[in-house]
């Protein structure tokens, strides 16, 4: 079993979303995540609050980040367990962020053997 990091970007325009749409989306996220938990795939995860800051280089320059548009902002992350990239991708396919043209970045976590 290997670990994979899911990074969620974009998705529905939540500030403009109606209460019904928000509740429906919330339920979809919940169902998807409940399934991951039930199957023992979920290790951890959290939504991220925005907006953040970016610290750059030796000058430690602080900026509001390179986010030109909302869809480039990481809205949350999740650590899951899967047998390989294929399974990790399969698990990510149910993510509701995809319903609104958002993206899931799937990254294998490097295995470090002591």
């Amino acid at each position: 079993m290997s670990k994979y990091l899911f990074l969620f970007r974009g998705g529905m325009d939540m500030r403009a979303a109606t209460p019904d749409a928000l509740q429906a989306s919330m339920m979809k996220w919940k169902q998807w995540m409940d399934e991951l938990v039930k199957n023992g795939k979920m290790l951890s995860g959290e939504p991220l609050d925005g907006p953040g800051k970016v610290l750059t280089g030796t000058a430690k320059k602080i900026t509001d980040g390179p986010f030109a548009e909302g869809k480039e902002v990481v809205g949350g992350y999740m650590m899951i367990e899967a047998s390989g990239m294929d399974e990790a991708l399969e698990l990510s396919k149910g993510c509701p962020v995809l319903d609104h043209e958002g993206s899931v970045e799937v990254r294998p976590v490097m295995e470090m053997r002591m």
């Binding site: 928000l22 509740q23 919330m26």
Partner: peptide, 14 residues
Amino acid sequence: VQDTLLKAMREWPF
């Protein structure tokens, strides 16, 4: 109100 619903939407699944 929108802030409130957004918070619920993001926290409750987790």
